[in-house]
Structure formats: structure tokens, C-alpha cells
Nucleic acid binder design. Sequence first.
RNA 1: GGGGGUGUAGCUCAGUUGGUUAGAGCGCCAGCCUGUCACGUUGGAGGCCGCGGGUUCGAGUCCCGUCACCCUCGCCA
Length: 606
Amino acid sequence: MKNAPSDLRVRKGCCVLRSHTCGELRLTHLGEKVSLCGWVDRVRDHKGVMFVDLRDRWGRTQVVIGPESSAATLAAVRLVRPEWVLLVEGLVGARPDGTTNPKLLTGAIEVGCRELTVLNEAQTPAFQPSATDLPGEEVRLKHRWLDLRRPAMQENLLLRSRIVKIMRDHCDELGFIDVETPVLGRSTPEGARDYLVPSRLDHGAFFALPQSPQLYKQLLMMAGFDRYVQVARCFRDEDLRADRQPEFTQLDLEMSFVEAADVMAVIEGLVKRTAREILGVDVPMPLAKLSWDDCMERFGHDAPDLRYGLEISDLTAIATASDFRVFRAAVEAGGRVRGILVPQAAAKFSRKDLDALTALAVDAGAKGLVWLKMEPSGEWSGPVAKNLTGPVGENIRAKLAAAPGDLALIVADTFDISSKALHTLRKRLGSVLQLYDPNAMHFSWVVDFPMFAHNAESGGWAAMHHPFTAPRAADLALLDSDPAACRAQAYDLVINGSEAGGGTIRIHDGRTQEKVFQLLGISPETAREQFGFLLDALRSGAPPHGGIALGIDRWVMLFAKLDSIRDVIAFPKTQKASDMMTGAPSPVAPKQLLELGVRTIVPPQP
RNA sequence: GGGGGUGUAGCUCAGUUGGUUAGAGCGCCAGCCUGUCACGUUGGAGGCCGCGGGUUCGAGUCCCGUCACCCUCGCCA
């Protein structure tokens, strides 16, 4: 054994220490003198002969230390432990007959060790990256450097890198200019909660981290950049989910002199290219476009999973003719009666299962769930079937196209609540009944969003997308007469029931922008104070423009067929937005707070 | 903020109705082993049962509180 060399010898290629990676050697390298660097994955000691699996991000190679190796090397390797970092020099040899390992790409060869250099020792790791049992996520996050040594995690980040490169290449080839925008910006009350950064030079004033570069990219259009793109970090101080982190990355882009179709075409090209290069799948273009109304009506949600059916049917007209009190009450209150037919599911759901589904519907706000099973006789059965005999039952059967053995789930409530309940049920049924191939990917657009939604807090209007979204040209007059009916030039990209991107054509004239602000309850004074620069810029020769932002983390998660966004982020945060590894966020020194003119209410923890 | 789940050895987990000294596999330490590749084999060390309180003759187990992590509703223009 010798110590790590201080005089780095130049070898072939650009690598000084190593000639090859641990995933590289094949039978074609037989007899070559090579040097490998990597981590000790496993050691197998057979006294006279020892095996060390050396691992790097490229793969794993078996190193043999046998009688041919020097006594010093043999003695040295006996001390080696998993996760030590080694430099191994030796000859590539073919493995003896019957000892090749087809599970490894390098399984036909092994490196006969001539010289062994310990580049670094390692304390016993908190968990073994090579282990088959995955540690709990808490442990993985705390020792993230170990977790990231696992081949699965390395593959995830490699996939992310490839996808981002495809995105950048695609935009570059289409003439997009990559422009960076500020991270320290101005807080606006719209949208999500801001992350704030206190100003040292102006006590009492705060920067906000961007929820997205929305206004900057619009101003770049007004500046004439025509096509802008950025891989942009965004920050939203809201509660986390499996697919939501407080900081996340968007492919943010904006184009001038375009209509929605132009932006969508750019993204469709990207979808096609990514699917081809990453999955080897050809996605037919153009993608299906569903109107928002259609989505809500048929799936109860604005980002439906279209890998399976279970569409919602409207039974309101049938219910109107019914004596069933539950149905009548909903209809008379202006609500709707809607249902899902689950083919050949009657026998699969026990009373207990149906109670669980009912609980789901109730959680979604519904007062209950009507379930009906169709008997072989063609009659409905179930707790309320007796209320739905005769023509009503027959009409429901006809409308749902129900057959014996089918299960019908019906919700009578407001449109919003029935949508939510049936969407929740549809999702549950889809996964429980395995109605789709989990490896399949389905891309579609949802378009024609309403401009506004009712804001429960203020009682006024809230922007469905954001306050800069342009209404459809034909709907411009509706801003005055009927804002609720006004549709936006908005488009969401939906992948497997997940919102993977969203964009709009923007308002490019000041008068319309002011009108929309006004509808949103933003006074002219507030608008001037917070968005004065935008209003001025809109009056300074703003081109028609629009764009989109894609959630890169979600894209990678979906393309990697993973359930958690954290598995495609190198250093993610926990559900309480803390970093298990660094301990962020942490208390700071009183001096730092003093400089910032900030006083905390809760005293710092010791 | 609400609902649900988990927390026992470094890691993954078992632990019965509340009852003697809390177990297993992996890892770790020390032997044996010349063709293994999740090597095998013999022995050994290793525990604040998340934390605090309570009930009890007795608590890993029951009760209350609390903390952390995960899923989820609200929230996320």
C-alpha cells in the first residue's frame, strides 16, 4: 500500500488518477493495464483470494486480490471496509469459466489488482448504500450524501440532467434567449405566500423570493427579446406535498407575437422530443385539447388522469323526475345529480369497501354517496334502490349504460361538490382497480379556463391563473357584463392527472390590465404602487405575448415513474420545509437580526 | 390549522392478554475459509423501546401530552 500520490501522473484521456470508470471495462479490454477509482461496495474475503466490488456512478467492477498480488497489497486490502475510497491499478482479466456475473455489465471481466491506494478511509456509514433494504426517508435525508451514492438516486439525477438538457437544446434551437431574472424581488399580495428577505439597508422593508419570474419575463418581451427561456428556481411558502416543495424549478419561457397555439406547439415539440429520447416512445401530435368545462363535467377536475375512463355522467334530468328525496333536494337547491359507472365492480366491493368510498365522498364535502349494484336480473340493489324503481331506475341504467355486475356511484350536490367527490372516487377506483398501466404516460392540454373564480374570503373575484392573463378576444366584453362567463387564453399541460405546466397569453394593453385589476379588487392606487412599472411598460409599446412554465421536478418525477418529487431533487426539504442535513432553517445571531432591524416574537432556541 | 400513519440496536423490522434478563436479519468487532458476487461459517459487542407525565405491585405494551418524519384536506394567483 502506498499513500495517495501528491504528484498526479497524467494518464491517457483527461483523467489523472484513473484510466477507466467502474462501468466501462469489457472483454475487449483484456490484458490492458488500467486504474480505477471508486468506493468499496462490498468485500468478499476468501483468505487466499479476495474480491472487492469497486463502485462509482458509472457502475461496478470486481477487483481480485489473489496470489499474484504482492503480500503488501494482500495485507492492505484486508483492512479495507465498505465506502472506503480506493485507487486500484491492475490488469483486466477474463473471469474463469462459471464465475462470470451476468447481472453486471462488467460481469465478464475483473481487474487483477497490482497496486492498491487508499485515497480515503470511511467510518462505518449510517446505512449501506449497497443495501437492499431502503432506510426510512428521515435517515436518507439526514445522510443525503450516502443516499445520493445509491445507484437509483444517481439515475434519477442523471435523468433530470438529461431532461433539462433536452429542454435547453429544444429552446435554443428555436431561438430562445436564456436570461436570468432577480431572486430578490418585490412582494405582491397575489398568489402564494412569499418567502421574505429583510433589507439591511432599509429597515422594515423586505424583498420577496420569486414565486415565478412572471413579470420579469413579460418585461423582457416588452424589451424586445422575443423569445425568453430560463431554468428558474421558484419559491412558495405553502404547505408541502409529495409533489410539492417550497423551492422548485420551472422551465420558464415567454414568446412575443404569438397566440396560444404557438406556445403550445413549442411545448408539444418538447414533449415529443423528451418522450422519444427518454422513453423511446412516439407521442402523436397534436395533443388532445379538453376545455375546462368539459374536464369538470366529465372528470370533476381540471387536471384529470386520462389513462383510464370512469367518466362522470349527468343524471340531473332523470333525477328531476324522481321521488327520491335526496335527488329532489339537490336538484331543487340548484345542484346536480351525477354518477360514475364502474363496470363489473359490484362483486369487488363489500359493504365495508363501499362505506370507505362513502367516507371519501363525505370528506370531499358531499352529504353522502348513493351506490347501486346491478343484479343479474337487471334490477338495481343497494340501500336506496327501492327509491329508484320503475322508469327512474331504467333511465339511470340507460344513461350509464349499466350491465349486470356493474357498480354505480352517484352524488347529488352542488356542481363543485359533486365534481370534487366524483373526482376523488374516480382517482381511488382507478388505482384500486388498477385501471391503467402505471408505466403509461398520457399528455393532454386543458384549455379555456375561466378568467375568474369566486374568492371565498373577499366575496369578490380571484384570478384563476394570475392577474396578467388575457381573456379570449371574443370574451373581452364579458369583463363588464358577465365576468364569470369570461374565458381566459390559458392552457395547462396535464400528464397522468398531474399539472405539469401552465401558461397563458398575457394582457398587453394597459386599459385591459387595469380593468382586470379592478375586477380583482385591486384599487387603482394599489395597482399603481405595486404594478406601476408593468402598467407603464404596457403603454410603452408592449407586443402581444404569452408563455408557459413547466414544473421540471414533476416532469422528471413522472418520466422516472416515481411517486415523490424529493427523489428527483438532490437536497430536498421535509414536510415542515426543513433540511434534515444542514438543519436549515436555524436561529441566527442577535447581531444579525439587529443589523436587519428585525426582532423575533419567539425567542431563539438555545 | 384539521384528519390519518409511523417512531424498539447503526439500518430494516418482530415483540402475544401489562409479567423474569427486549429478539431476528443486515451492518459492526474478532476468528476460520483460494472463485465469490446479498459469499459462507464460528463467536462477540451493541438498547433513553422518540421525549415528558400518568395509571399500576409491575409499562416497549394502557392513558394524556409533546416532538420528528410520511400521506392527506385546507392552502398552493
